Computed example of a mutant assay.
Amino acid sequence: MKVAILASGNGTNFEILAKKFESNELAGKLALLFCDHPDAPVVKRAEKYQVPVRTFTVKECGGKLPYEERIMKILKEFQIDFIVLAGYLRVIGPTILQNYEGKIVNLHPAYLPEYPGLHSIERAFADHRKQTGVTVHFVDDGLDSGPIIRQEHVPILSTDTVETLEQRVHECEHRLYPQVIKEILPKFTKKEQN
């Protein structure tokens, strides 16, 4: 079982998962990081764990379709079986979805279906909600609309700032995402063996 992580930014979730793959706490091998921002900090994190990195932008490819086709070539080249999104800030299009249906998971910093899309933490905070959350879900062709695997609420405290709330949401992500991936990857490993 070869796993690719797709990410766009800082890469804290990537690093936690990379450590777990390295220590064999997660089934399979972390075989690739793809990043759509060549200068993102996640690239350095991947190099630290000696995970192969491929990075390019939609603009370099001349549009979304050629961009996704180029990603697909890389996924095939690395013989990727399963995709984990960790702060990947692009919608997965049909080119990749058709080839990895039911084999892509995403982590979203909200209690879906509340606040799909970008800036979920800020939006929940601005709406003066009592709680937000974290959701791990399979990816489908909608915006954060795929089947939910697991969710947890994160309270929004009266003393919170956006920054303190964001920190607690990330703490929840860092705990929840590896747990869920640890549970689901062996199911896909068994499917690959059959």
Rank of each mutant, 00 (worst) to 15 (best):
M1T: 13
I5D: 00
L6M: 14
S8G: 03
S8Q: 11
G9F: 08
N10T: 13
T12N: 02
F14I: 11
F21C: 09
N24M: 08
E25T: 03
G28N: 04
A31P: 06
F34T: 13
A40K: 04
P41G: 06
V43R: 07
A46C: 07
E47T: 13
Y49N: 09
Q50E: 15
V51A: 05
P52F: 01
V58K: 12
E60I: 11
K64R: 14
L65K: 15
L65Q: 15
P66I: 11
I71W: 04
I71M: 14
M72D: 12
E77D: 15
V84F: 00
L89W: 01
T95M: 02
N99I: 00
E101C: 15
G102N: 07
K103G: 05
K103P: 09
I104D: 04
H108Q: 08
L112W: 08
P113S: 08
P116H: 08
P116I: 10
A124S: 13
A124M: 11
F125E: 06
F125A: 07
F125K: 03
H128F: 00
H128S: 14
R129H: 11
G133D: 06
T135A: 08
T135F: 00
T135D: 07
F138N: 01
F138R: 02
D140L: 09
D141G: 07
G146K: 07
I149M: 08
R150I: 05
Q151E: 10
H153L: 10
H153V: 11
I156N: 03
I156E: 08
D160S: 11
T161E: 11
Q167V: 01
C172W: 01
I181A: 00
I184P: 01
L185Q: 08
P186E: 10
K187G: 06
Q193M: 11
